[in-house]
Amino acid sequence: MVGQQRMQKPLPQATPETQEFWDGLKRHELRMQHCNTCDRGYFYPRPFCPYPGCHSRDVEWRTASGKGTLHSYVIAHRGHPAFEPPYVIAVVALEEGGKMMTNITGLDDPTPEKLPVDAPLEIVYQDVDDEVTLPLWKAGVGSPQIAAAT
């Protein structure tokens, strides 16, 4: 952008129950919570299990694999002014359980053909500034469609 400053991207600010997640990202670790009662991981962080039928408070932080699958997405052609369209707003189904919104990175000119639902993904740590690292995702091992397109 020459002669024109792009609007700043909105950045998150941690709260007490999410601090560990955001601190972990700065160390390039995906920290997630796991319910010891129903033995499932969940997202986003909160001090109890959110799954219906459980809601246990016996939960612990674990370091997650950083693997998941492309659960669903849109390709935004008209979106936030700080983002260069087209860009992919996706939801990742995390290997440990739970769903996370993200952007798919490393993909020029995204199209539906390049982005099959359920394709494997892996995390990419994007250091935005000293305070914030964002969890972006890219084509994972065994994702020939996305890999071929990058």
Binding site: Q13, T15, S72, R78, N103
Partner: peptide, 28 residues
Amino acid sequence: ARQSMSGQFEAPYGVAGPPSMFSVPIAR
């Protein structure tokens, strides 16, 4: 706000109102 759950877990990825949010499940 930046500390809301949407401020932390959706806004950073460029959601821009209902067209880029309500639409997310359709591909599935």
